[in-house]
């Protein structure tokens, strides 16, 4: 199974061998899981990264059983690169492509009540809340302060993910509690975790849901005013 995520500045790929029974998200060791961090170049980096990952593992595209992709939330442009790449790659091979909320790529391997925050730009964060790896709130986009408030309301006292470093003052609880946060969560969504989450559907031969990107924001457009006079 090939899994990828482009919902953050990281461009992440994982090649995983799915065992016969559905694996626990944290228990699956990928054959390869390269990651390149460059927020503006997903479109250039992703396909070569997939090519090299397959080549180094000696796996041909035709050997794959399925494709998994993080659906976001994330910046629109990089998110689309990942989703269209996964969808088209799968279609060319006649494989199914399974979409998973990208935040689950961090949250599914946490324990206790944990929040995941990533950078949504414009001084906002994408966030979700987890109870022992199960998503109980979100995904949503909010101001960091509001996200912290909503997470606290869900009993969350530990926050992980790349949004943390951006707003250390908003999520200060983590600094103290971080060491006891159970499984050390990856900084960026881990596609191997996404693959484990999609594995039950793949193993059961269930048709995946349509790949709907989790944008959480509308396009920034306004309807035009009536034609303005150019004279007088």
């Amino acid at each position: 199974m090939l899994a990828l995520d482009t919902s953050t500045p990281a461009c992440s790929v994982a090649l995983v061998q799915i065992p016969d029974a559905a694996p626990r998200p944290g228990a699956m060791r990928p054959l390869a899981s390269p990651q390149v961090v460059d927020a503006r170049r997903h479109g250039e980096l992703l396909s070569p990264l997939m090519r090299d990952t397959l080549a180094e593992a000696g796996v041909k595209p035709a050997d794959l059983a399925g494709v998994v992709v993080g659906l976001g939330p994330g910046p629109f442009t990089s998110l689309r690169v990942g989703i269209v790449t996964a969808a088209t790659f799968a279609a060319a091979l006649g494989l199914t492509c399974h979409g998973v909320c990208s935040l689950d790529g961090i949250g599914a391997v946490t324990s206790g009540r944990t929040g995941v925050v990533t950078d949504a730009r414009r001084r906002e964060v994408f966030w979700a809340g987890y109870a022992d790896g199960e998503r109980i709130a979100g995904p949503a986009v909010d101001r960091p302060g509001r996200a912290a408030e909503l997470l606290r309301a869900d009993g969350v006292d530990v926050v992980v993910g790349p949004g943390l470093a951006l707003y250390p003052d908003v999520f200060p609880n983590v600094v103290a509690a971080g060491a006891g946060a159970g499984v050390a969560a990856a900084q960026y969504p881990d596609p191997a975790v996404l693959a484990a989450l999609a594995a039950p559907d793949l193993l059961a031969g269930r048709a995946p849901a349509p790949l709907t990107p989790i944008y959480l924001r509308r396009p920034d457009v306004a309807e035009p005013h009536p034609a303005k006079a150019v004279t007088g």
């Binding site: 396909s47 269209v84 088209t88």
Partner: peptide
């Protein structure tokens, strides 16, 4: 830019998948 990127990413994925 954003529109081109979708097509280019798709084309690469297709070419890569089929070799």
């Amino acid at each position: 830019a954003g529109a081109l990127l979708v097509g280019v990413a798709a084309a690469k994925a297709y070419a890569l998948a089929l070799g």
